[in-house]
Design a protein around this nucleic acid. Structure first.
Lengths: 245, 245
DNA sequence: GCTTTGTAGATTGTCAACAATCTGCAACAT
DNA sequence: ATGTTGCAGATTGTTGACAATCTACAAAGC
């Protein structure tokens, strides 16, 4: 070594050494969108964002393109970028794909999960049961997210994990939009979670996949019920589609 | 209407009216990468690309960020962007996910395909059989791509279609890299394709899903054979992983 | 001979200015 | 009163210039 020893935490200088401003801006906007600080439909003004983050418009625009490709914002030429609004129909599509991925996750996780992983999952299920009994939705919701994300990690496939997280992010947008984050939020499925973990512990890949698939389908069913309900109240056409050529 | 009638084809002016330069640059680069004009590992120089496409570096950089998020290029800070190299291990991951998506595609397509769709698929299978008998790989390969993409469209789920196409693009990068585009290329599976179409025609969702899953798994097996072969020739560790936090 | 240091060129990261487009409102004509 | 036309302000799209960083090669020191 030459002269100076590195400080303890990753210093701000060290961070700027490896990350570009574009990346930082993207991460910050992504965080705000997923946290609900910025709501679906909101307009993101280049100059305002740049001013608030103390950078010029260049990095902001680059971050916008990345977020667009990630499905978090939508761009209208000469009009600006808006936080994406996920319609009910789109959310339905996403749930459908999520069910397929979850089935795969179940199969793979059953083969690859270690006893320590199983123990961790059981612990999570325990916490969820507790939050469920207390009807504490604010505690239950993030636990549910963590549980399923952990499963996706255990599948041991980075591509699968990335695809899964992308879908979860988009579903997050749907919940933010409707304010009714009630789909996966309500603790109706504590026993299902326990069953899933036991299937993993028994190394039963087919069963674990089947259970996770059904679990996702059930969430989708709750969405459909919401769809029915909503179809009666407002003028029936608020759903707009984005076509992929 | 006010004064002028629109011309026949979409004029260049009309095109620039709706598309930004960033979008055009992105599409052009995507085309070149997938067509093999630019190979995995190649460096993309901002100034060169900008000069060749007659734009400034701004739109080029924005296009780079979009392509990065799309998984087609990789960026190293202060060093530039490179066409992504998909390793064998990554290709293996992608095949695994693709199998899961294909299973879902089969289930959904079986429910939603019209008789006209079935006829179109039968026509495609016929052409593939023909190219297969003639051992014409250059004709067979794009037909195979078209067949599976058509299936993905028939599933009637835009989210699923987008996810599927992204994986196919990444697999394309793997094939470009190894020059051995032999995985799905060789016409070993003409009969499988016919079976799939018949399952769709019979509206047997479970069977169609199962057949497509097995079809993808078989492609993956051929990849594993290639993996075994390659493991013996070069020093055993050329595979690098990208970790997702 | 090998390592280290320094410098030159090229390339990327960032910024500020300019041009084009859109939105809203007011003035005008019908 | 209604619809059209024409600005004025604001916002996005694009460009060129400047600053920071990296790579490569050559010179100096051990």
């Amino acid at each position: 070594m030459t002269k100076t020893a590195p400080k303890g935490p990753p210093s701000a200088l060290e961070l700027l050494r490896s990350q570009s401003l574009t990346t930082l801006v993207k991460q910050e906007l992504e965080r705000r969108i997923l946290a609900g600080d910025i709501l679906p439909g909101d307009k993101l003004n280049e100059a305002d964002v740049a001013a608030e983050l103390r950078v010029s418009r260049g990095p902001v625009r680059e971050a916008f393109r990345a977020l667009e490709q990630a499905g978090l914002v939508r761009t209208e030429k000469n009009r600006g970028v808006f936080v994406r609004q996920v319609s009910l129909a789109e959310a339905d599509e996403i749930y459908e794909v999520r069910a397929g991925l979850d089935e795969l996750i179940g199969r793979l996780a059953a083969e690859r999960a270690t006893p320590a992983d199983i123990a961790e999952l059981r612990e999570l299920v325990g916490q969820m049961r507790q939050a469920g009994q207390a009807q504490d939705v604010d505690a239950y919701y993030p636990l549910n997210i963590r549980f399923h994300d952990r499963l996706a990690q255990l599948a041991g496939n980075g591509t699968l994990l990335a695809a899964y997280r992308r879908l979860i992010n988009e579903l997050h947008l749907y919940r933010r939009r409707t304010l009714a984050r009630g789909q996966d939020a309500f603790p109706t499925s504590t026993s299902q979670h326990a069953e899933i973990v036991e299937a993993l512990a028994a190394r039963d890949a087919t069963l674990a996949g089947e259970l996770l698939y059904q679990h996702a389908v059930k969430s989708r069913s709750r969405l459909h019920e919401a769809l029915e309900r909503e179809d009666n109240l407002p003028p029936p056409a608020l759903v707009r589609e984005v076509s992929i050529p």
